[in-house]
Design a protein around this nucleic acid. Structure first.
Lengths: 208, 208, 208, 208
DNA sequence: AATGAATGAGAGTTCATTCAT
DNA sequence: GATGAATGAACTCTCATTCAT
């Protein structure tokens, strides 16, 4: 599979793996893919250039791996996000609000990951990234589509718009809110309020 | 002021100015700022390297100038967008819908400009662009804020959220829709329907 | 002796030996020595890097070994090529023509070997290859010199030119013909005609 | 046209042009194209990496240019080589012998050029060189074909073989002789004898 | 007002080889 | 006997920028 880092990488001690991933995360988060420098990454990771290419297929492969790694870290930090199975719209939205809250907490506690993922989402439309970096997108898609269609089935989500448009709108909204939350971090105490506001915005857009 | 291109530039014959701006537009639209190459731009514009640096302060200055140029071109193609002064919410939204329709028509007829602006908006959060490229953002802000506050005054726009958040949400929404419209271009006949759907989405988010 | 591959190599099962030689043949034939990559060879051979260096002294040693291997394979495919012992010139040339025919058949049925040997012969003058790769040349020399001197003794070959020059001329001619035969492969039916033409060319050069 | 070096190059002072060409000649002659290093060339030429790429399109372009330059130098050292127009075979061969003598003298006085061209001819069949380096071949072809067909018309050259084969044979022969002459340089006094021997070899192959 | 020659720093990538295990 | 992790040096090539003319 593409973007998976060579198996060799996973045979490194955790410490070194982390050093590399941290260095890459820092660089990619701070400068985006195009402006990131492999030289800086290997230097700050303390490995040789040859080693980097021994572990990864190249810059894109590394990027894809870091994205995937952070995505999984964020998603699996405290358990999975099962597709909501609620029967009534209220329950459906409640579950999603819970997910969103968890996500926000994770991202606000890890600004670098937030920046990395923001840059990645922003460039989602750009075709300049090869297949590797786009592979991660594909992994979230089934979950999103299932959740969407569940929502539609139980009457929580409108059916008069194309699913892709709904998804895009939600993510665009989410990204805007995400950016705003970064600049205006609510005290943890009122984070729940913020999230419920966000969910309200999303519901307004998405509800029938 | 930063990002304004040197006054020298405006003393060139229109033809040369256009050649430069076209070349830059093509390059920046196709590759984004970071991956764009000044060398390619001057070559395709048919000017010398020295001239480029005589007219512009550097890559970023050129980028800022192109952004501004396209922004103005789009905005002023068929007259200004005066801040709506309507008294009643319905009229307010009608005016905005008209603006949006004009904007969409302009962008759909000029995909390069659309791509350029999309890339620029996407990178809005990224700090890697210097002050120059961010200057253009500042120019739209007053208009947006005035429109927003008008909307709030006449009861068309909610007042329970921070203005920046409202703005961000609208733009995030707009961007998502924009991307979607690019991939699924409606026949011109139904463009109005599409726009009214979009306006509806925005109103849902923004209305009190 | 240099270029002989370490004896260890011959203790491998035939299968593995073949895998290595095949991979190396493919790479060297396709790219020539300088552009060939050991990494690609070991990967396609399915052996470890350590093993490669355990079996061979390095890139050049491997190259020399492959050359020798193909040379022997071609020469010994269907029996040896004994130095002609004929008494009369006609018989002498008939024997050589037979040899040449066998050689051509072998090479035309094995284009990779043909390409490998062609590249090797072409680089014969170049000093960039170390002693190892040149060793194979030395092995053919005695046979050639003996055949040449036999030819001279029985009056089939001129004696007014330096042996090295005669040899070089014959091989240069042969190489040119070889290349031409590759591009214009005669039907197997007329291969004999082609070979007799070739032999005629050689005789013209070499006969007294 | 390909392989022509950028016009910028020709605007350099002769001294610098020569420094670059000399450095490139030395490197390419000594190591062949694949093993040559641009780094070494620029270092020994005393120019920066950027400059090299300012003058030439890349390694291949430089190689093609050096080939062409040496070819022209050798060919035009003392006047052109008009296609022989003689009516009788003896005259035809005499003219060619004269050409060959001039060529040999030139090459024996300039071993680096000889080595460069030898390497280039040897790799002529190899497809690894791009179009640039092969362009020079095309320039000699018309002359060769015209000379060949003249020879055939006046009965100096056999007509029972494909022209490409005849050409190949002559060049293969020539190359072999060339190599031999390098290793066994005849005193200038007997160079004419050597050349007439060579011409005799060629005539044997090529005469009807 | 305009040119384009010149450059150094740096890009990503591949390489043959070593050696501890 | 065999492995593969590790590397540093080298590779070709592109870049934005400067500045003498």
């Amino acid at each position: 599979m593409v973007g998976m880092a060579r198996p060799r990488f996973h045979r490194l001690d955790e410490t070194q793996q982390q050093a590399i991933l941290d260095a890459a995360l820092t660089e990619f988060a701070a400068r985006g893919f195009a402006d990131a420098s492999l030289n800086r990454i290997i230097e700050s990771a303390g490995i040789s250039k040859g080693s980097m290419y021994y572990y990864f297929d190249g810059k894109e492969d590394l990027y894809a791996h870091v994205i995937r790694d952070r995505l999984e870290a964020v998603i699996e930090r405290d358990g999975p996000f099962p597709v909501p199975e609620e029967r009534d719209p209220e329950g459906f939205w409640t579950v999603l609000a819970g997910y969103y809250l968890r996500l926000m907490r994770a991202l606000m506690g890890d600004p670098q990951t937030a920046a990395l993922l923001r840059g990645w989402l922003a460039g989602a439309g750009t075709p300049s990234l090869g297949a590797a970096a786009r592979e991660a997108e594909q992994r979230m898609l089934p979950w999103l589509m299932q959740t969407l269609s569940t929502g539609q089935r139980i009457g929580a989500v409108r059916t008069d718009l194309a699913p892709e448009l709904i998804l895009g709108a939600v993510m665009g909204l989410g990204q805007a809110i995400d950016v705003w939350l970064i600049s205006n971090p609510p005290a943890d105490a009122v984070l729940e309020d913020a999230v419920s506001t966000v969910m309200d915005l999303i519901r307004r857009v998405v509800a029938p």
